[in-house]
């Protein structure tokens, strides 16, 4: 019997006038490996940040449901979460182990326990020899793997991964995917945000497609292909996100004076978020 572990109930998120997420509801079950798929600015990162309690929903709520069925606001039960942000967030002057230990201590985990667990997982990722090295010289892949070990050091129920294989070579990416699958088999819930549809198809039992701040589809890869009458997840994705995509960045809060000053120094009113720049302007690839 599936048990809901994390419940997103009619959650929307606005940043000023920008509606980053529009009324999303989602239940994440124990042992699910959920692929969060969407283009740039679709709202994936906003949803991930809502799931780990970094953002407060504008409406609705995100709750963690414990074994007894009691609901807790997510920010009160962060020790049940392990997060790998896209930026990895490692301290360059600390060793990989010191980075991991810092987070495990903040999770009230005994150093010895954290070390044993880290060593075991590091062996699976073939980086046990690098644990005592400063992360300053680490490649993107090494950083990703260290961040993953850090997220797992306190044995969380839910793992939130933002582009976990970004920058990894083929072999390392496969190791990470194998580890994620293993974690799912152990009954851990994994939310796996990615651009790579092939990867999502390989790793995830369930795909959630976010587009322009809305939930476009939620189901297994085969169900999504069946639903759209396509042969691949990529075709299904294209079919489900045919309307023009927007590029919403989370706007930084600005004072009125700063807005006035920006207008004065750029010589024009800033276009509202989502609006295309004028022809001749630079567009992100």
């Amino acid at each position: 019997m599936t048990r809901t572990l994390l419940s997103v109930r009619e959650v929307s998120k606005n940043f000023g006038d920008v509606e980053a997420l529009k009324t999303i509801s989602l239940d994440l079950n124990k042992g699910d490996i959920v692929g969060l798929v969407g283009g740039n600015g679709a709202g994936k990162t906003t949803l991930l940040r809502l799931l780990c309690g970094l953002y407060k929903p504008s409406t609705g709520k995100v709750v963690f449901v414990d074994d007894g069925g009691v609901e807790h606001p997510i920010h009160k039960v962060r020790s049940n979460l392990g997060v790998v942000p896209e930026a990895t967030g490692l301290y360059a002057r600390l060793t990989a182990w010191e980075n991991i230990r810092y987070h495990s201590r903040l999770n009230n985990i005994d150093d010895k326990q954290a070390w044993n667990r880290t060593l075991r997982l590091a062996q699976a990722l073939e980086m046990e020899d690098d644990l005592q090295r400063q992360t300053r010289g680490f490649s993107r892949g090494m950083r990703q793997k260290t961040a993953l070990l850090r997220a797992l050091s306190h044995d969380p129920d839910i793992l939130l991964l933002d582009e976990p294989t970004g920058g990894l070579d083929v072999t390392s990416a496969r190791r990470v995917r194998d580890l994620v699958r293993k974690l799912g088999d152990e009954g851990r819930t994994v939310i796996y945000s990615t651009h790579q549809l092939n990867e999502a198809q390989q790793v995830c039992d369930r795909i959630v497609i976010i587009h322009n701040g809305t939930l476009r589809a939620d189901g297994s890869p085969s169900n999504l292909m069946k639903l759209t009458n396509t042969d691949s997840l990529e075709d299904a994705f294209v079919e489900l996100t045919q309307d023009e995509s927007r590029e919403v960045e989370t706007p930084e809060p600005e004072s009125k004076f700063q807005r006035f000053w920006s207008r004065l120094t750029t010589g024009r009113k800033q276009p509202p978020s989502g609006e295309s720049p004028p022809s001749g302007g630079e567009v992100d690839a």
Partner: peptide, 13 residues
């Protein structure tokens, strides 16, 4: 700026 704050804010602290 270094992006370490986000990971830190995700901890129970």
């Amino acid at each position: 700026e270094r992006g370490t704050m986000e990971a830190l804010l995700c901890t129970p602290a």
